[in-house]
Design a protein around this nucleic acid. Structure first.
Lengths: 216, 216
DNA sequence: AGGCTAGTGACAGTCGCTGACAGTTGACAA
DNA sequence: TTGTCAACTGTCAGCGACTGTCACTAGCCT
């Protein structure tokens, strides 16, 4: 008996250690970024706070910006999952709309396990106000869009290579979502609740805004 | 008589010299980027080709990426101008749609004065396929969006701070435009004409894609 | 116990970019 | 013309992000 009788399904010590280093880097980075600013924080400062070498940092993250998006990834995953669960009788746009709202409803707890919600919020605002980060954010969004398109197309039994409608719908939807993010970042309220409200109100107006004669 | 009796309205020698340096940098950069790739081209190579110092390069362009967007700026300006000229009785979305198509119709000549159209096309594709450039591109787009919102709001006699409809409409429109760019970049045809066709067909489908039941 | 290898640190080097300072050259007035 | 001023430019020195290399440590597996 060596005392190594670990629960079989669980990751080994090596894996857990890695995860801990990674988490520590994310937390330290966001802490530093939000207190002294993204550009004014060097990678050297981050690694010093966690006491690892700079080389190690770049083994975990492809770039200084990547570390910021570790949490964002979770949120997106939550939305995608939620979309997959929508009943097939909903129209594509309706399914997208409900999936976002559902995701916002249930997001609070799942972030909290990892970092305080308030830290996530600060990170979100930091992204909106830092050109370098915003650029990465937008690129990431574009990539997620592709996955969403595939899901929507599958729901409707379409081949996305053939039919442009899933692309167009998702593009329009995504445009409005980005707008919501920008507005929320510029506003006062820092709550998930306010983000949800804003999202709902903008998505509601999408169809009318395109068709209606605004002057009545 | 000193021979310095220059035509009064024209920029002086200094100004012309500056412009020449700038143009030379843009051309050299795009040439190098498109032949050997963006990342594999160093700023040193660019300045060597034009025979100026690296410092000078950074006085003209805020970053290595900026030089790529010198031409793109022209195209966007053309679109904005075209939008301003649309008759006020058109619906906002209709005006946006026609403005893009008009812009594509008249874009050819105005680029040619500066660089061959084919070079512009290659630059466009390079942006689509280079993460660093795509990120900047998207950021630039977001900034242009704001101006478009103001124009649309003005057409309709609305205050954009009050009414979210201009924002929503432009966000959706812009999302589809980005999609058009991506599709065009991924396709075979490298002509302005094909870009125009693609744009037209996607914009046509925007409204139906949101409302219709796709399964009939 | 002992070999295998993923993960790490140390170090040197490349590249994008900036600040400071000095030299040069158009613009403009005397 | 000539002299002064301000705008441009080159040189140099240096920072910070990022990468390649190589030796070493410590979980892992038999």
């Amino acid at each position: 008996m060596t005392g190594r009788g670990v629960t079989p399904g669980l990751p080994g010590l090596r894996e857990r250690k890695k995860q801990r280093t990674r988490d520590a880097l994310v937390r330290a980075a966001i802490e530093l970024f939000t207190t002294q600013g993204y550009e004014r924080t060097t990678v050297d400062e981050i690694v010093a706070a966690v006491d690892v070498s700079q080389r190690t940092f770049f083994r975990y993250f492809a770039g200084k910006e990547q570390v910021v998006f570790a949490v964002q990834e979770m949120v997106e995953a939550r939305f995608v999952e939620s979309l997959r669960g929508r009943p097939p009788e909903e129209s594509p746009f309706e399914a997208l709309r409900r999936a976002v709202l559902d995701a916002w409803d249930s997001i609070g707890e799942s972030i909290e396990e990892f970092v305080p919600v308030e830290m996530y919020m600060r990170a979100f605002r930091m992204i909106e106000s830092t050109p370098a980060l915003l650029a990465v954010q937008m690129r990431r969004t574009a990539e997620t869009e592709e996955e969403i398109v595939r899901i929507v197309a599958a729901r409707e039994g379409l081949d996305p290579e053939e039919d442009p409608r899933p692309w167009v719908a998702v593009a329009a939807f995504s445009g409005v979502m980005q707008l919501a993010g920008r507005r929320w970042g510029a506003g006062e309220e820092i709550s998930v609740e306010s983000m949800r409200r804003l999202t709902a109100s903008l998505l509601e107006r999408l169809e009318p805004s395109l068709a209606e004669d605004w002057r009545r």
